[in-house]
Simulated scan of single mutants.
Amino acid sequence: MHRLILGIESSCDETGVALVRVRDAKARPELLAQALHSQIAMHQAYGGVVPELASRDHIRRVLPLTQAVLQQAGVALSALDLVAFTRGPGLAGALLVGAGVACAMGAALDLPVLGVHHLEGHLLSPFLGADPPEFPFVALLVSGGHTQLMRVDAVGSYELLGETVDDAAGEAFDKSAKLLGLPYPGGPALARLAEGGRAEAFKLPRPLLHSGTLDFSFAGLKTAVLTQARKLGEDLPAHTADLAASTQAAIVEVLVKKSLAALQQSGLRRLVVAGGVGANARLRAQLDAACAARGLRVHYPELHLCTDNGAMIAMAAAMRVQAGLARPTRDYAFDVLPRWSLQDIAA
């Protein structure tokens, strides 16, 4: 069994490296050390992620972060058993950096390597926390690029229940924030501004809320925010907190009600929330209250593990190894999959 697994994440604008130990086939893998560098400050000047700059920064950061993780864990490079990396989805150039470094390390040390699905990393990240879930559960994967509801029966056993037909929830946060003149990254800035606003101030749409399906749509909400901002005109600065609060309330209501519907339709009583939007305080509070009222359990990653990180990649690799689903290789002719469905890796 591969006992010491190094995980490298480089799918977008965070460079993450972590080390996980697998004691046996049944014990939960143990996170030994992790390090993360965010590129937010670099991309702020452009109002969003610049792929070429992201790739170049990954190149600068990944080896120093790897050295820091090994030093923190007190583990020699030669003691590693497996190197895992994010194979997709994500930005092609950014993914190639992590894959290239992982495969070069594998070739130099004669170690097997394993490409990991980025969303599987998010989905399994709550297992790193103090309150890990148990299978089966419904997962709400909610981030800047993805909004999906999945039925998860075991590692590798994933059934898509619903997904966004246009913008993801994170995109709705970010694009609405930009319309309000907020700095990048827009989602957290909008959430902070919303704390001082009135959620009922503006009547905004809840797309597909009563569609009878578990699919999402947030593009119409973004358009409604734009329309309202134009109506306010010069008065917008006086109402930005209210509009931010109303926007957040619309997004959160849809996420909460669709998640509860997924639990009801599946007959499951456990919800896992993962992805960057899973750090949103209003979303957590409303899900906690709604699930508690119905006798349901809800699990989240630790706040610092909601964004992209190496720990979730190392954990996903470790859990696939334990489940007998991993196919590590010493073929170092790597590729990446910028568009990769989570269902493509289902057992």
Rank of each mutant, 00 (worst) to 15 (best):
A99K: 03
A314F: 12
T240C: 14
L19H: 04
P51V: 10
S259D: 05
A289E: 15
E52P: 03
L124T: 13
G48L: 08
G16F: 12
A219N: 05
G275T: 00
L305Y: 05
K258T: 00
R23D: 15
T247F: 13
R61L: 14
A201W: 07
G197F: 12
Q343S: 14
H37E: 12
D13L: 09
A224K: 06
V152Y: 07
D215S: 07
E171F: 10
L63N: 01
F218H: 07
G324Q: 09
H299C: 03
P183L: 11
G93F: 14
T240K: 15
A250R: 04
G186N: 07
P51S: 05
R294T: 01
S341E: 14
N280G: 11
L303I: 13
Q343I: 10
D235E: 15
R192N: 01
D235C: 07
G278F: 08
G47L: 13
Q34L: 13
G275Y: 00
V75C: 11
V62Q: 06
S143D: 02
L268Y: 07
T147I: 13
A73C: 09
F85A: 03
Q264T: 13
P207A: 13
E120T: 06
S125K: 05
G106E: 08
E52C: 02
A290S: 14
D331P: 01
A68N: 02
E200G: 01
A318K: 10
E253H: 06
D166T: 02
T240D: 00
P338I: 11
D344V: 02
H304W: 11
M315Y: 14
G129V: 11
I59E: 07
P64K: 05
G212Y: 12
A314M: 08
L296Q: 05
A201Q: 03
A333M: 06
L260A: 12
T15P: 04
R327F: 03
T66W: 00
K257C: 09
E234M: 05
D308R: 02
R61M: 15
P64H: 07
V252S: 02
G267T: 08
G186S: 07
V17G: 04
D242V: 09
G196I: 04
P338S: 05
A108H: 03
A311M: 12
D167H: 01
V50I: 15
G276A: 04
W340T: 03
V273E: 02
V252D: 00
D242I: 12
G145A: 14
K203Q: 12
V75H: 01
L96Q: 14
A172L: 08
V62K: 04
F202R: 06
H122N: 09
G47R: 03
L296K: 06
L160E: 00
